[in-house]
Design a protein around this nucleic acid. Structure first.
Lengths: 350, 350
DNA sequence: TATTAGCACTCGATTCTACCGAGTGCTAAA
DNA sequence: TTTAGCACTCGGTAGAATCGAGTGCTAATA
């Protein structure tokens, strides 16, 4: 996937207050109506007390500077990505509505279950709150130490290695043996595996026994199986909520298809969200997040931390003309609640 | 969700061979072109050596009997659900193409990992093979006996109960305690839990200790947490592959939205697939599967068995004018391979 | 100098009309 | 029973006419 550098906010992004208000009015109305916005409607809605003619000449300037564009002569203006960017950068933080606040509160009061379940449900919540597609990313246990491992006999030739990590994640791996394994052997192998692996991190060098007896072979097999997984960017969990909202956000069926196709590729989604976070942005508009198929999209992200460590992110994907204020407020609120939710769980232990 | 009874195949579904061939030609061409089919093109393509006029009168009959419909006077005919049904019922089994056969073989030769991973990837495979959206359902461990449980200390107040079932599935449950738990206590609780639970099934009555010491409390907590999950139709796993294909299959954005909205609801998808299987069908066309939002869809299903026990299903969802022959062949081939894949794993142990 | 009223102009969208032609249903002959 | 022939239907397409929202420019004004 070809990528373009994410735009650096340029310091020269300053408009005099009248231009700014006109731009804002255009963006607001376009977000509302999805139609090009004309000078007269700006004159009517924005509280700049000048005639449409003056606004017209200002709009010419705004277009020259790249904030607005004209679909064709004799149509109104439409914001460019740069226009949206200015709008977003100068947006005073929105607040979430009563009803939504209520929904969030209720959700977190009632939600229970394991981290994965909470994240999956959060994704649905976020999508319902905003009517955009939501993305929830949970970072994996790549750097977590192993707390415990256990080998279980499914049957004589078929063992299951279950590993618990310090972050509470659990993995399972099938181990196939070429000989019949007795219960005693499994227990002993389990014991040795615990001795070897507890406290280590996936991929760390481990001194495996070189003997050729059943137990040693089993231990070697298990360690190999476990470590085989290490190099894959593992445990990254992605939960997509409200993918049907894609069909509401974009009108061209082809655009819908493209966006869905992107969302199907979890790795892409993870790196998209990660990239935006890495750039310190909370919104990426149009071409700012160098994924060409998503040029007509804006992505809002908010990090989620557990105990102060970044451990995931939540995101919203909508059209560039999305309702930034509401969506950002919702994302912020949910990410805060989520952080608090997990920290709360944690606090109970200290 | 309102449901309608699934249509019972009626014994009177017989057309004389000429009508049948005409119907088949109409269906084939409509599937190809998505356009209403006229009598003259049937005369040209179907190998019935009669004039278009004759075909016309036959088509009138077919329409009267409910196999065809006319979008409007002076347009060609389009198959009804009943028409598709006849077509499908009288379809001789298709074969999968060379290239696809190759892809399937390759996939199963290389696929590795746990059941969940295999199912998820299979879903992607199936979708790529057919360019329809695929659904893979794995049945849960609801009836599986517990092979082993282990309680792990995440920290003093925070334990994780990891349970392994006979079918190889693993669950984890957080247990919060109101007192600090020592390592020794966790080990002892783990031992007692194993003694209590091994061999039992989720939801079975278990004699928990009534003492009030730490270990007993821990054991009670853990059992309660584990059993709390039992009533939920648990472990049903759904993997949707190629949801972007929905946007290719239907042209109205609204239809796309509706279908996506259904696919988001896993429980609905599971019951849809299950219902079709229960009726002994392998294809449900249009309104046959009483889900109103899916009237313009056809669903192909094929069961997957492990060791002879039904243990899941794979499905394909497309427009009613989908390429039944190819899609059914692909579904059959993949389900057979999948069954064989899992049985093969099993056979290694006997 | 900045603003504005006025005005000619542009051009997509809408409506209307004419018309084409694929496809039908019917009839009468083979 | 089949078929050639034919009048008829009606959605789709192409043009023409029109509409009107919105523009850019100019000249007058504060």
């Amino acid at each position: 996937m070809a990528r373009r550098a994410i735009r650096q906010p340029s310091p020269a992004d300053d408009l005099d207050s009248r231009k700014a208000r006109i731009l804002e009015a255009v963006v607001r109305e376009h977000i509302d109506t999805a139609q090009p916005v004309g000078s007269s409607s700006v004159a009517a809605t924005s509280h700049v007390a000048v005639s449409s003619a003056t606004i017209r000449s200002e709009m010419v300037a705004l277009e020259r500077e790249g904030y607005l564009a004209q679909p064709h002569t004799s149509a109104g203006r439409v914001p460019t990505d740069k226009g949206y960017r200015y709008f977003v950068d100068h947006l005073q933080a929105g607040v979430v509505g009563e009803a939504q606040q209520q929904q969030i509160k209720e959700f977190f009061a009632n939600v229970r279950g394991e981290v994965e379940d909470v994240l999956a449900q959060t994704s649905t919540l976020l999508s319902r709150l905003t009517s955009y597609t939501s993305v929830v990313v949970g970072t994996g246990h790549a750097e977590s130490a192993i707390l415990s491992t256990q080998l279980v006999n499914l049957d004589a030739r078929h063992q299951l290695l279950v590993t618990v990590f310090a972050d509470g994640s659990v993995t399972k791996h099938s181990v196939l043996s070429t000989f019949d394994v007795s219960h005693v052997e499994v227990v002993e192998a389990s014991r040795q595996l615990n001795a070897l692996l507890i406290g280590t991190v996936l991929g760390a060098r481990v001194q495996v026994p070189s003997r050729t007896d059943h137990v040693a072979t089993l231990v070697r097999e298990a360690v190999a199986t476990l470590h085989a997984e290490a190099p894959t960017i593992d445990g990254e969990q992605v939960f997509i909520g409200g993918s049907s909202k894609v069909a509401e956000s974009f009108d061209g069926v082809e655009t819908v298809r493209q966006v869905l196709a992107i969302l199907e590729q979890e790795l892409l989604v993870v790196s998209l969200v990660q990239d935006i976070l890495d750039q310190g942005l909370s919104v990426a508009i149009g071409s700012e997040h160098g994924f060409e198929p998503l040029v007509s999209c804006a992505v809002i992200v908010a990090p989620v931390t557990i105990d102060g460590h970044p451990s995931g992110a939540i995101g919203l994907l909508g059209p560039t003309r999305m309702k930034y204020s509401e969506a950002m407020a919702a994302a912020r609120a949910v990410s805060a609640q989520l952080t608090q939710h997990f920290d709360g769980e944690d606090r109970a232990n200290h």
